[in-house]
């Protein structure tokens, strides 16, 4: 297997992994925001960081 193939497979796997992680992370955020009530971006970020 040549170097391009190895790098390419790693990139594909990383891309799909990144996609999945971002969607799951976002879904958790959406559900937490819905539970705690909608607010400004700053307030939400503060609350999400504080709640971790």
């Amino acid at each position: 297997m040549d170097a391009d193939a190895v790098i390419g497979i790693i990139v594909i796997a990383a891309a799909l992994g990144l996609l999945t992680c971002l969607v799951l992370w976002s879904r958790r955020r959406i559900e937490r925001i819905a539970r705690n009530g909608f607010g400004s971006a700053r307030a939400i970020e503060k609350e999400l960081r504080g709640g971790r």
Binding site: L22, I33, S40, A41, R42, I44, E45, L48
Partner: peptide
């Protein structure tokens, strides 16, 4: 919008790692 109006609007979703994406 996030920089200028982020404090006035009511968000249902804020993206992680902003503003990188």
């Amino acid at each position: 919008v996030r920089l200028n109006m982020g404090d006035e609007l009511s968000y249902g979703y804020v993206m992680p790692l902003f503003p990188l994406p």
